[in-house]
Each structure stands twice: as structure tokens, then as C-alpha cells.
Design a protein around this nucleic acid. Structure first.
Lengths: 214, 214, 214, 214
DNA sequence: TATGAATGAGCTTTCATTCAT
DNA sequence: AATGAATGAAAGCTCATTCAT
């Protein structure tokens, strides 16, 4: 029932979002200019401001929806009792990795949170921050459920960190790759899974040692 | 024997390098302007162009020396027969991490190598690329020496990758931190070591499994 | 009899004029954007261009009506034989001042006539110019009627100028005030009247002196 | 002893100041763009930022020096015991008028002080504000010294206001004129003096009346 | 009549870089 | 060797205005 005009509008918006997503992924948020996005989207740079308040809003719109979808997926996996704890962790991790490689702006969003952002205008980014935290919490609890109970909280934190280092490293390594996320996943998905297994196994091993020492 | 003029010239160059190193570490490569460096170095911004083709050249010159020193250190560790293989790997890894956190531009240099660079003007970057490769090879061989022999080359590569993911993750996580490298190392050195141990232990475990399966 | 469509059209136009008048008074001509007016008027900004060629045209249309009303009022005062000449001048002046403070764009219109305007498109502004001149002439003749006859035309002109300086000064002083015209008039009407009296009395005094000297 | 380079620099700066002064006068501070000034000054718009931090700094530099000179002159006149009180007032007033017509940006500076300025960034403008107040105070006290003592403070204030209306009116009337200040002063100086006399005489007259009434 | 879509020109400001000295 | 002067390109963003519907 959409009029032709509405369709055109929708198309333009989508073109902008697509262009922005592409460019943000390739060059990073800061390195991409509004005019660049507009050119890629085939419209004037002012048109961009019709659809998005500013560059940040564009990033926001680009992120929130997909992130919420990801959150849902991850929650489903974690609630899936047909899977072993370890498989849940593996699946959740791969989901997260794949997501970040498909939406490469996410790398900045997840791993490059600067203090400067928080200072002044937390408002527009806040929703994102909350989502970010939620996802990290999901993964952390999945990890801890896969490990034997660790009483020493500092040590539990250390293991969580090590797990996140691995994720960060995987995503960071391929964020600027020229391969598509599909190509990367096809080529490397086993390595990613192996990576999670390695870290998980290594943690367990260390915990045994630690326990034995005590 | 250097004439007075040559000495003064050398001093200026050193001042520029010092200022640039300081500022790059503090604020990151992109966030520092040429004029800022010049002001800090106590000379005009045009002087900078006498010694360095551009900002990038400055970064390169800034990197080569320290990297060579790092290389030496790493080679020494690897050649140190008083240490176990595992300890050599751990030490080499921590050296590398510490180095990258002290010279934060290194993160970009090591992990953000873009294709675009290579196309056009490979020449100045070449030396760096060689160094980079050397260091990675050093670490890779240290890792493989710590692992039982792996005939399957693809699998060996996978383990190397996983190890590098961890390094990348650690450095990437703290490259933009506001803490100094000293603060970070004091606070997190045990976690970094644990991280290497975890990965190493995990790899070993996986190799056993893999072997058993066969 | 107006059709329903015509009525609606008339309403829209009125809404735009009202909004523009309000905003121009509040923030000044330049500080108000077309979109702002449209939003206030409850229509699209493009609609504005249906009724008015541009922002300037809007200002003109906004001015002519009120100015004609003012002219009527001033003519009535001048023709009012129940008042003394001096009182007519005072009343006419205060009317003018109050009008300008209620319609603050008038300040620009009356006192900021630029040469550039006349060059290009005298047509739409012409009507305003005629009105402007009429009003000034009305006040000038009211002044001269209050003064003893002055044979020296240059001197008569000087007194007229001095009188207009006072008006210009009063209006200019408060055109950008944040007080409403009502507040200003309540607070300062006596000062405005006194101002006219002072100038009038001063002129008379000077004419005596001048006469004596001759 | 200035090198050729220094001279060129000085010339450029002067050209910018001249252009800015001219344009600010013609169109007002806000309506003039940096690029416009640069074009008029015959240099790139970026050159402007070499000499002045921003547009406001340009206005500042344009104003403070001349204003301080004016202040000196006015103080000298007021301290000059060879002149009658009335002559001091007249002279001070004409000085002020002539100054404003020579530096037409001053009109905005003196008479268009907006609330917005004061809010946020009073700092750069502060020095100007202080000077402004000083000059007004100088003129006000000169006026009150010329008038018989007025016990009623409100009435004294009213007279001061009326006097300032006249000044404002005179300056406002010719601020946008195309005549130079020299031309204007030659043509109208007698009228300006007469204007001060008229207001002064008128005030005295009114005070007599007021006194008689009491 | 009325409007959403779209644009070009313009704003202030910063930057890396070059030129003449 | 070293520098101040100067610039073009680019950034994010806003505005009045036009076009197609």
C-alpha cells in the first residue's frame, strides 16, 4: 500500500544505511565522512540529514536492530537444554563472531569504547551501551557455566578476560579483511570453534592445577 | 666527527622523534597533528618536513629502532637454554605485549596492516613489514616448540592463529586504555601470563584429543 | 462566497503569517528559518513557498497591513483638533514607537533600508517604501507644526533629523530587548513621552537663541 | 628593521582587519562569513586563522585598541578645565559619535548587546563589555554634570536615557550609510552638536518645569 | 492545495602540505 | 638548516529553495 514516493524514500534510506554499513566496516566510523557515505549511496550529503540526525544517529540505527536480534539468538542458544554447556558456549561465541564479522562497525562499537563517549552525551549511545553489556554478560555467564565452579572471584574474572581476549583477537584480526563474513566463516569457522575449545579446555586445565596446588 | 651543525640537526630530529613518540602513545596516531608534534619538539612544523616525508614516515622511523631492540630481546629469550620451552614462549609473549602497550602505535602497525598501503608505496614500509614478519615468526616457532610435533600443517597453523588471536585481543583491549603500560602490566601481567598458559595448555589438550581420535 | 477550499487556504496563509509574525518578533528576521515558521504554522515548509515568494516577501506581506492601520491612526491624531499641536506630536510619536516595538521587524524596515534592495527588485518593496515615507512625512509635519515657523530650511531639516534620531534611538534600543512591547510601554512610556518633550522643548529653545542671534 | 616577510605578514593582517571592519559595518557581525572577509582581504580563508583564533577574536582585535584610545580621549576632554561643562559634554558626545561612525562595527558592539553573549562565553567579550560600560558611564556623568542637580534618581535616569537615545539614533542612522565617516562628519557635525544641545537644553527646561511643579 | 524528497551553496574550522626566504 | 606565510581539501552540519507527486 506504500505510495511510490514512500518506496523511493525507503529505498534511499536503505541505500544510505547500506553504504554506511559498508564504509564503516571498511574504514572505521571516524574515517568515513558523511559526503563519502552519500556518494556511495548515490544521493546528496544533505539528504542524509533528512533521514538521520547526525553521523552518530546513523551508527545507532545501523546497530540497535541487529544487536537486538543477536541478543535474541544468543538467549535462545543459552536456554537450549538440548545442548551441552560447552556447546552452548561454543555456539554463542560463534554467533557473536559471525555477527561482528557481518557488521564490522560492531568491532568499534564493542571493543573501542572510549571514555570520551561517556563524558558528555551518553544519551544517544546509552542504549547501545546497555546492549553491549548485556551481550558480554550473556557470554560471560555461558563461559562460567562451562567451567567448574570457581570460588576465587579474581580468578574467575581472569578466565573471563582471557576468553574475551580471544574473541576480541578473532574479530579484530578479520575486521579489516577484504573477505566477506561468509568467506571468512567458511574458511575459518572451525578455527574459531577450536579457539573457543582451546580456551575452555585450557581454563579447565588451569583450574585443576590451581585446585591441586591449594 | 660531526660538525656543530650536524649535531644541532641531529638534536632537532631527536626532539621531533621524542615528541612524536610521546604524543602518538598518548593520543594515538590519527589524533596527533603535525603542528602539535612540532610545538612539542620546539620547532616549526615545516622543519618536520625536512626530516620526514610525512607523518607516516615519522611513524616508521619511530618504530624501526625499538622494534629491532625488541627483536634482539626476543631472540635472546628464545636462545636462553636455562628456560623451559614453555617459559620461553611465555616470556617472549609478555615481552611482545609489554612492548605493544608501551608503543601503542604498534597496535596499528602490527594488526591493522591494510592492503591499500602495499599497493602504492611499499618501499618505506617494507623494512617494517620484514621486522613484523620476523617477530611473528619468532613467536610462532616458540609456540610450536612448546607443542608436541604436529604433522598436520593446517592444524599447526590453526594453533598458531589461536595463539595470535589471544595476543591481538590482549593488546587491542588495552591499546586505547588510559592507563600507562606500567600500570597495565602491574595490574594484569599475571592475567597475560595465564592467558598464554591457558592457550598453550588448551592446545596441548586438543592435540591429544585429535591424536586419540585418529 | 468563499468555497471551503478557499477558506482552508486562507487559514493556512493566516497561520503562516501569525507564526512568522510571532517568530520574527521573538528572534529577529535573520534568526528565524523557513522550516521553523512552517513547523509553528503546522504545515510543510514547501507550503510556505506557495503563498510567499521567499522569506522577504513574507516579511513584506506581514508589514503592509499593520502599517496601513498605523497610518490611519496617525492621520486621525493629526487631524484631531481637540488636541494641542504638541500633544498631537507626542501622541503620534508614541503611536509610532509602540507600533515598532510591537512589530520589531519594523525596525529593520524603517531604519535599515539598504541601497542593495533598491537596485534589483524594487517592485515588491515599493509599496513599503511609499508607506514608510508617508509615515515619516506625517511625523515631520507634526513636528514642524509644533515649532515656530522656521524660514531657514536647512535648520528645519536639522530639527527634523534630531527628532528622528530620538525615535530611531528609542526603537533601536529596545528592538532586541526580551521584554514584550506591553512591558516596555508600561515601564517606559513616560520616558518616551518625556523624550519627545525634551526634544521639542530643546528645539524651541534653540530656535529662540538662533533667532536672537540673527 | 622589519624583514620583507614580516612586512608582508603585517600587510596581510591589516588587509584582513580592514576587510573585516568594512564588512562588519556593512552587514553586521553575524551576516559576514569568514570566507567573505578573506576574499575581500585578498587571501585564503585559512590564512585568517593564522592571525586570528576565530571570528570573535577578529572582532575583539578590531575593537579593543581603538576603544581604549577613545576612552583616553574622552577622559582628557572631561578633565579639561578650560572647557565649560556643556562643551565637555558636547565634545565627548561628538568624539563618541565620530568614533562609532569610523568604526562601524562599534554600533553592534555598543547597542546590540544580546543576552546570548553574556550567557555562555563571556570571557572573550568581557574586556569589551567593561570598556563599553566605562564609556557609557563617562558620558552619563558628563551629562549629569551639565544638568542642575536632580534629586529624583528616576528622573535623572530618564534624562540619561533620553540622551543615549539621541546618540543611538544618530549612530544607528548612519551606520549603514555609504558615506565615509569623514564625509558624514563634515556634512552633519553641526547637526550632531545641535542635537546634543537640543537634548541638553530640553532637559534643563523640563527640570525647571518639574521643579516648578513640585 | 499541499507535501515529502532532494539538493547546492554555504557556514566555521582543522589539517597536512608547499613556497619563498 | 630552518621558518613563517599561505593554501586547498576536507570535515560535519544548516539553510533556503525546487521538483515530482
Amino acid at each position: 500500500m506504500a505510495s511510490r514516493q514512500e518506496m523511493r524514500s525507503e529505498e534511499t534510506k536503505k541505500a544510505i544505511l547500506t553504504a554506511a554499513a559498508e564504509l564503516f566496516s571498511q574504514k572505521g566510523f571516524d574515517a568515513v565522512s558523511i559526503r563519502e557515505i552519500a556518494k556511495e549511496a548515490g544521493c546528496s550529503h544533505t539528504t542524509l540529514y533528512i533521514y538521520f540526525k547526525d553521523k552518530e544517529a546513523l551508527l545507532h540505527e545501523l546497530s540497535v536492530g541487529p544487536l537486538q536480534a543477536l541478543q535474541k539468538q544468543m538467549e535462545n542458544v543459552i536456554a537450549d537444554s538440548t545442548l551441552s554447556q560447552d556447546d552452548r558456549l561454543k555456539k554463542v561465541s560463534v554467533l557473536f563472531i559471525e555477527f561482528c564479522l557481518s557488521h564490522r562497525t560492531m568491532y568499534t562499537l564493542f571493543f573501542m569504547v572510549k571514555a570520551s563517549r561517556i563524558d558528555v552525551e551518553a544519551e544517544p549511545a546509552e542504549e547501545l551501551q546497555i546492549l553491549r553489556t548485556k551481550l558480554f554478560d550473556l557470554m560471560k555467564s555461558a563461559l562460567l557455566q562451562s567451567l567448574p565452579e570457581e570460588k576465587n572471584e579474581a580468578r574467575a574474572l581472569a578466565f573471563a578476560r582471557i576468553y574475551f581476549y580471544a574473541l576480541h583477537g578473532i574479530i579484530g584480526t578479520y575486521t579489516h579483511s577484504e573477505e566477506t563474513s561468509e568467506q571468512l566463516m567458511e574458511r575459518l569457522a572451525p578455527t574459531f570453534e577450536l579457539s573457543v575449545e582451546v580456551v575452555l579446555e585450557g581454563c579447565k586445565q588451569q583450574m585443576e592445577k590451581g585446585a591441586g596446588r591449594k
